[in-house]
Computed example of a mutant assay.
Amino acid sequence: MVLDFIEMIKVIFLGIVEGITEWLPISSTGHMLLVDEFIKLNMSQEFKEIFFVVIQLGAILAVVLVFWNKMFPFQFKDKTKSMIRKDIFSLWFKVAFACVPSAVIGLLFDDFLEAHLQTPIIIAAMLILYGLLFIFIENWNKRRTPTTQTIANISYKTAFAIGLFQVLSLIPGTSRSGATIVGALLIGVSRIAAAEFTFYLAVPTMVGASALKLLKFGFAFSSAELIALLLGMVVAFVVSILVIKFLMTYIKKHDFKVFGWYRIVLGVIVLLYFSIMI
């Protein structure tokens, strides 16, 4: 079985959606599930579930590329000399510490969450709820000065607190980046530090989620399925690079309220659409 042209166009479109929504705090999983209501891949439900998760690896590779100099703890001056960045090692330990809550809850309740929470109504409700939170928190932050200005200043306590907020992203429509950014802003982390820590946190989180899906599904892909996965990852990778650079430039001068309003409008549209359809 070979992936036909129409299915290839669908995969490319889904890769674009993933690349845009993975890093903007508007819920990539929520968008992917909603898009699938209108642009359905002609593949099994089991494969689509793994596709929506595994193509996120393309987005992760984009983060690694963009932040390589900040993420990689080994720096080589020449062929004989190298330097270890202890500050980067320390940061990765904090990231690992922050991953613990979502890893535990995800392993325990993954099947339940898939079976009961991936519904349009829940997705819409989470889009609206976190949209309102973004607007409220940004208005509240106008009267506050962040206590943690840079990612290097994030403590283990703050990292773990952000990790607790990431657990909320297991509910479709919440947004992993949305939950962690909202949490970070609430506890006094600056916008830029919150966004950067979210990027770091995404690497082990999404690699782990993809590995879990692959272990459940197995590795017996058809040629069409394999092409779909690789194509989706490549498209998500390219788009993610552009979106990450845009977001880091945008938040230097703007707040997150525009994403809050977007979430509210989209959530209302989804509720109205599915109310009419039901």
Results as ranks from 00 to 15, higher is better:
A211Y: 09
A211S: 10
L212E: 08
L212F: 12
L212N: 13
L212R: 09
K213S: 12
K213P: 04
K213V: 06
K213D: 04
K213N: 08
K213Q: 14
L214Y: 07
L214K: 10
L214P: 07
L214V: 05
L214H: 12
L214Q: 12
L214W: 06
L214D: 11
L214C: 12
L214T: 12
L214N: 12
L215M: 15
L215R: 14
L215Q: 13
L215F: 13
K216M: 01
K216I: 02
K216P: 00
K216T: 03
K216Y: 00
K216E: 08
K216W: 02
F217A: 12
F217Y: 15
F217W: 08
G218L: 03
G218Q: 08
G218E: 06
G218V: 03
G218M: 05
F219Q: 07
F219Y: 10
F219H: 04
A220L: 11
A220P: 01
A220T: 14
F221Q: 05
F221S: 01
F221H: 03
F221W: 01
S223T: 07
S223K: 02
S223Q: 09
S223P: 00
S223L: 07
A224N: 12
A224G: 08
A224K: 08
E225D: 09
E225N: 06
L226M: 13
L226P: 00
L226E: 05
I227E: 03
I227T: 08
A228K: 02
L229M: 07
L229E: 01
L229H: 03
L229I: 06
L229N: 00
L229R: 03
L229C: 02
L229T: 01
L230W: 02
L230G: 05
L231H: 08
L231C: 12
L231E: 09
L231I: 15
G232A: 06
G232C: 04
G232Q: 06
G232T: 04
G232P: 02
M233A: 14
V234H: 01
V234L: 15
V234C: 09
V234T: 15
V235A: 11
V235Y: 06
V235E: 09
V235T: 13
V235G: 07
A236L: 09
A236I: 05
A236N: 09
A236R: 10
F237V: 11
F237L: 15
F237G: 11
V238D: 08
V238M: 13
V238L: 15
V239M: 15
V239N: 13
V239E: 15
V239Y: 12
V239S: 14
S240C: 13
S240L: 14
S240N: 12
S240T: 11
I241C: 07
I241R: 04
I241G: 01
I241F: 03
L242P: 03
L242A: 15
L242G: 13
L242W: 15
L242S: 14
L242E: 10
V243Q: 07
V243T: 13
